[in-house]
Design a binder for these strands. Sequence first.
RNA 1: GUCCCCAUCGUCUAGAGGCCUAGGACACCAGGUUUUCAUCCUGGUAACACCGGUUCGAAUCCGGUUGGGGACGCCA
Length: 429
Amino acid sequence: MRRAPTGQVHIGNLRAAIFNWLFTRHEGGEFLLRIEDTDRERSTPEAVQTVLSAMEWLGLTTDGETLYQSTRREAHLAAAEQLLKSGHAYKLDKGGTGKGEAVLFKMPGTDMAFRDLIKGDLHKAAENLQDFVIVRSDGNPVFHLANVVDDIYMGITHIIRGDDHVENTYRHVAMFQALGAPVPLYAHLPMIVNAQGKPYSKRDGAAFVGEFKENGYEADALFNYLALLGWSPGDDREVMSREELTAAFTLDRVQSRAAQFDFKKVRMDECGVPQKLPADVYRQRFKQKLEQAGLWSADFTEAYLNAVCELMRERVKNWSEVAPQAGYFFTEHYPFDEKAVHKRLAKEGVRELLDALRDAFAALPSFDATSTEAALRAVADVRGINAAELIHPLRVAATGLAGGPSLFHLLDVLGRDRVLERLGRPIPS
RNA sequence: GUCCCCAUCGUCUAGAGGCCUAGGACACCAGGUUUUCAUCCUGGUAACACCGGUUCGAAUCCGGUUGGGGACGCCA
């Protein structure tokens, strides 16, 4: 596993890491980590730590020492020297910025082919294979060189990486051959795309490991979901332990087409969020979502927010549900669900029932879950109707929704004034 | 522009010539259970991109078309 520490660990990198880990575990091989920190500007200690902690969080244990590529500079340069001597490379001033001579690797001049463990046989005609820089004119080795030299050094047998490296593979294969080293086996993973079929980015939701962690997702749930994205065991299993995944994982079952990452499928309840996230953290996250939806205002107290969270905690399965499911607690302009209105409110006699409830609630000495429920049942008894015939319209009128938390507790939290006002409104059409 | 890759329900996928009138899961819809909600149960809608070819037989093999994606740095 190789990782360039450039800030965050993207969902695609993460899946590649998981596949690598699963593959080595299945084959009984070693899972090694190499930090490609040759880019001084971007490779800060913090960035390296981000990679390391992401791996640790996911439980991607390594089997040997982590190799920092920056410590291998001399070996990279020595290899370039060797290639120069053997005639596989040459120096050239490509001009432009006037930096002087760079070292270029000379492609063999023949058609090339390799067998990808996922994509099958791939080949490329000689005229499409161009020579390329392996040492810059400032003396620094380029990624391609460093990569191949270190792969040889580490004894890498399998390279499982993203699709975007397919074209580089011809170059790397040629270098392994020129250096007289055995060519590793390659497997290129298809991309992860968003709902529009475009490459998944942070605009599409949580794209980085840290965000999942912060949002309370459990590592096992993310691990399971990602392992099953672009790969399947071949049977109907969907929820698998690491042991099961390891036992079943083979590269020939990896899908060769891009997979769409569906944020909603990584469900919070599977991650145990409502139960496991501390109440205050949950509340903060909840509030943050309200703010993003423009529903929060300083007029609401922490106690009120807390009461709402208590009601919603077991029901909000995904942070994207906060605004649609609990918005009515924070605005009087809550939207009405069309179907719910049609089914529960837009009916003969409902207007009159709501008025009766309103009067009953207004007359109560105290407004709490017990008293409102008793009052509602009394109204139902007097009219000889089922309580459900009052409960449903009341819920829709008060919240705009067909479902939600326990009705009477919800009314309690909303408070008498707002409930009475909502009940007095004209029925939306 | 050049080169390369990909194509099964909305989504993740099963499917390696007959077991496919294409299976599962999630989502969705409809009923049921639950005094309301959630949960749970039952049922349902829904896909082989298109056109040719090979074959007794094609989702599966071949060719083309269309659509999508990727790579074309002295970045990694």
